[in-house]
Design a protein around this nucleic acid. Sequence first.
DNA 1: CACCCTGCCGGAACCGGTTCCAGATTCGTC
DNA 2: GACGAATCTGGAACCGGTTCCGGCAGGGTG
Lengths: 336, 336
Amino acid sequence: MSGIADVARLAGVSKSTASRALTGGGYVSDGTRRRVADAAASLGYVPSTSAVSLATGRTRTIALIVPKVNRWYFGSIVEGVERTLIPLGYDVTLYVAEPGSRDRESLYSTYLARKRFDGIIAVALEPDDADLERLANIGKPVVSIGNALSGVPTLGLDNIAITRIITQHLIALGHTDIAFVGSTPPTDAPAKDVDERSIGYRNAMNDNGLAVRIRNVPSTLTITDAYAAAASFLADAASRPTGVVAACDEVAIGVIIAARRMGISVPTELSVVGIDGHDYAEMFSLTTIEQFPQAQGIEATRMLVRMIEGAGEVPRRTEADTRLVVRSTTAPPRSA
Amino acid sequence: MSGIADVARLAGVSKSTASRALTGGGYVSDGTRRRVADAAASLGYVPSTSAVSLATGRTRTIALIVPKVNRWYFGSIVEGVERTLIPLGYDVTLYVAEPGSRDRESLYSTYLARKRFDGIIAVALEPDDADLERLANIGKPVVSIGNALSGVPTLGLDNIAITRIITQHLIALGHTDIAFVGSTPPTDAPAKDVDERSIGYRNAMNDNGLAVRIRNVPSTLTITDAYAAAASFLADAASRPTGVVAACDEVAIGVIIAARRMGISVPTELSVVGIDGHDYAEMFSLTTIEQFPQAQGIEATRMLVRMIEGAGEVPRRTEADTRLVVRSTTAPPRSA
DNA sequence: CACCCTGCCGGAACCGGTTCCAGATTCGTC
DNA sequence: GACGAATCTGGAACCGGTTCCGGCAGGGTG
C-alpha cells in the first residue's frame, strides 16, 4: 500500500505539497499539481480514510437509524439515502433499532457515542428526553424523518391532515359507518404516526357527527398480521363497517385480502382506503394517499449534507409530498 | 472531548499504560487498571475510532453489498447481518449495487478501494473476472451469500436440487403440464439463481419425459411485475399449464393474485409452487421451499468474523437450510 | 536600489491512539 | 546474598494524512 509519502517521493516534492496538490488547498503550481496527480495515479494511491479523519475530524460517513429495514417504507428510505449519499463521497452505516428493544440503550451509549459519522439521519426515532439530550451532546447534525424531534430539522407528513382527507373521501361517498384500523396501543410500538392518523380520522368523523369506531391490528403493521386480525374482526357481519380507513397500505392490503378470502366484496360491501402509496397499491387497486419515502430519503440526505458542509440553512420542518390517488377499493356503500 | 492523554493524566499514569489498561494488552497491575478505568468512566472517555484504526489497521466495520434492500430476501439478510454484527462491536456500512447499473464500477474503483472495512459480505454479487481480481487484491476477507465466487467462502442454496424437489412435488400430484416462471434472459439481471432453478426444473421434467415450458416475468422478480406478466400469459386458456413452478415466492404470489383476479381457481385449476418461504407465503397458503435469509445473514457474519479475527477455518461452501412446506396452492390437476 | 507582496514549497507539529523497547521493581530460587 | 525471570511502567516511535508557519524566489512599485 503506497502512502502519500511515496507519492511525494515519486513526484519529487514534499508530503505537504503532495497533500495540497491532491486535496486542492493552498498554493501549488499547475506543473507540480500534475506531477503529483500522475504519481498518485501510477501508484494507485488511495488515501487512508482513518488518517484523513484523524487529521480533519471528518469521517465522510453518515449514520442511518431505522426501526426496521424489511418494510417497504423503511427500505425505500434506506435506498433513497444510500443512492444520493454514495455519489457525494459519503458512506452509510446502518443501525437498526427496533423501538422498545434493548438495542436502544446500546444505540445511544455505544453506537452513537463512537461518533464514527459526520451526521445522523433518524427515521421514526422516538427518543425520550434523556436520549434527546445525549443526541444533542454528540454535537453532530441530525435530520429526522417522520417524527418531530425538538431542535432537529424534521421531514414528515401532516398525518392528521392526510388522514382527514382520506376519511373525508369515504364520507363524501356516502359512508357513515367507517372504522379506523390501527395498531394496538403500544408500550413498544412505533405508534406516533398511527396515533396522529387516528386523530385525523376522529376529527373528520366528529366534524360530520359520525361515530368513531376503532379496530386494532398488531403494531408490526405488516400485511400478514393485519390479514390475520382482519379475518377475525370482519367475521361478524352485524358489526362490520362499510368503510375502513387503514393506518397504512400494508394494513389496508391485509384487510382486503382477508375480506376477499371471506367472500366480502371490495368495494361493493366494504370500501378500504390506505395511506402510503405502497408498491402493491396499484396491484390491489387501492385508493390511498401516496407518500414517497425514497424521495424523503433523498431530501433528508440533501438537508443533512447541507448542514454538515455548512452550506446554507435548513428549515426546521419540511412537509413531505403526498397525493390522493383514487382507485377502485372505494365506492358508495351498498345501501346508498 | 477527552482523549486518552486526559485519562492518563487523571489516573496518574502514562499514555501507554492507560492504553494497555483499557485495551487489556500487556502487563498492568490491578490497581492501575482500576484507576484508569475509573478515570475513563468519570471523563466519559470514548476512544477515537479513526485513531484506533490508524494505529491498528483495523476498522471494526464490515461492508455489506446487496443488489437491493427493498425486497424480502435482501432486507432479511441485512437485518440478520446487522443484528449479529453490532453486538460484536462492528459497524456495517451498506452498499447497494444494482447489477448492471453504473454503480458497479464505482463499487470497485471507489468504495471498495477505500478499504474502510475489515471484511466484506457480498450478496448475490456477480463480478466478472476483472472485478474478482480487484476483490482479491483488496486483501480483506470476503464471504459470499448466494453466489459462488472463486476463492471465496460461499453460503448458498443448492438451487438445482431444491427446484427439482418442488417440481417433483407437482409431478407426483399428477401434473404433466408444468411451466417454469422465471425472468427474462438478463443482460442486467441477477439471474444466476433463476438460471440454476430453471435447470432444476428442466432436469425434473426431462427425467419424467415431460415437455419443458417456460414463462417469463421481468427480472425484478417482484410481486407486482410478476402479477402484470402473469395476467397476460394466463389469459389464453388453451395454452395454460396446470402447474407453475415459480422462480421465487414473489413470482408465485404474483401469479396467484393474477389467477384469482381472472377467476382461475388455485389450486383447482392451477397449482402454484414457489421457493423462498416469504413472509407472505403462509397468508397465501403457498406451497414452497423455505429458506431463511436472516439466518443466512447471521451465519455469513459469523463466518466473516471468524476469518477477520483469525479464529478457525471456514468451509469453502456452506449449504443453507431449506425445508419443503406443503400448503394448499397445490393439488392434483382437475383432469386427474 | 530597497522594499513589499505574491506564489510556491518544505519542515515540523499535530490528530489520538497502539506498540516496541528499555529500565525499574518485585519475587522466587539456588 | 546473588541472580534471573516475571511484572509493571514510561518514553518514544509510528500509523498516514493535514495544516500552520516560515523561507525563498521573482515581480512590481516608489
